[in-house]
Design a protein around this nucleic acid. Structure first.
Length: 297
DNA sequence: ACCGGTCCCTGTTAGC
DNA sequence: TGCTAACAGGGACCGG
């Protein structure tokens, strides 16, 4: 599934391929894919037709394109299986949900197998801290639905010390905190597990008992995995999501614990364990990441 | 204000 | 072989 590095790759691809293009037509083939747009599918199409795509911006896994320097934007969340594909021809696709026709006779297609992703055209609101809304634009504004989403680890305007302090003020498990979008955005299940393994910390460590240095290690671990994934996967915009299941080459080669139940830990050889966690899975090394006596899940 | 549980979707895979 | 159930998971939402 697209995690932050993949979304950043898409953002970069949009910035290089469709910036400055004007939308000439909008076709919504699945209403559910625009369910977050308040005015419905017709309003969605109406608000986009004739608009120029001016900048591609990202915060966490939210992505948006500014429209004509005005106070709204085309916003996308790719969910688990969403893809934004730049086409020169109207290619048929079984999971095509929205197609934007562009004034260079090309297309921007939103393809989404599992339809957890969505598009909308929300209004922009000023950022609370007066800094740029995200990566890709200097404009101090974000789409309204993104206003409560925290900055991510790759954001230059992220207040790192404040984040560490906020995590330690929480009374929850460490992994829950890492996944909490209102604390820090863009860390998904895979990156949380991989980051915690690098930091040698168990996911259920209670946040209120963590040392500052331990929180910093956990964040550094997640940052490291993201940076490496970005460096390896960030070159081919069109080919990135050819595999619908989202398994990029990076994940095939580089995962230490995620999905590796029973396989040896790359560091110590102990078989990786899998636990039920928040109705999904957590993978960790029983030796490198000892379970706390009183864990918070 | 904070915290944790539930649900939304659909294609693939595992199991009977 | 054909069916069902489990699984993948970010974020909105809701109740405590």
């Amino acid at each position: 599934m697209p995690e932050l590095p993949e979304v950043e790759t898409v953002r970069d691809g949009l910035a290089r391929h469709v910036l400055g293009r004007t939308i000439t037509s909008v076709a919504v083939s699945r209403d559910y894919s625009v369910r977050r747009h308040t005015g419905g599918p017709l309003d969605f199409s109406g608000r986009l037709t004739g608009r120029r795509l001016d900048a591609a911006v990202r915060r966490g896994k939210f992505l948006w394109m500014l429209l004509d320097d005005e106070d709204d934007a085309l916003m996308a969340h790719l969910g688990m299986s969403g893809q934004l594909l730049v086409r020169t021809e109207p290619v048929e696709h079984p999971h095509l949900r929205v197609r934007l026709g562009l004034d260079d006779d090309g297309y921007l297609d939103f393809v989404d197998q599992r339809t957890f992703g969505h598009l909308s055209v929300p209004d922009l609101v000023p950022t609370a801290d007066g800094a740029p809304g995200g990566l890709g634009s200097d404009r101090h504004a974000v789409p309204e639905p993104v206003a409560h989403i925290a900055r991510d680890l790759l954001d230059p305007a992220l207040d790192h010390d404040a984040l560490v302090a906020a995590v330690r003020r929480r009374r929850t498990g460490l992994k829950r905190a890492l996944l909490d979008q209102t604390l820090v955005s863009g860390i998904g299940n895979i990156y949380a597990d991989e980051g915690l393994w690098r930091a040698k910390l168990h996911y259920a460590r209670p946040t209120e008992t963590l040392r500052r240095s331990e929180v910093e290690r956990a964040l550094a671990g997640a940052h490291e995995v993201m940076t490496e994934a970005l460096a390896q996967g960030g070159t081919s915009f069109d080919a990135l999501y050819v595999n619908v299941n989202g398994a990029s080459g990076y994940f095939d080669r580089s995962l230490a614990v995620y999905g590796q139940e029973g396989r040896p830990c790359p560091r110590c050889g102990t078989p990786i364990r899998r636990d039920e966690f928040m109705n999904r899975s957590s993978y960790s090394c029983p030796h490198c990441q000892p379970r706390p006596r009183r864990g918070r899940f």
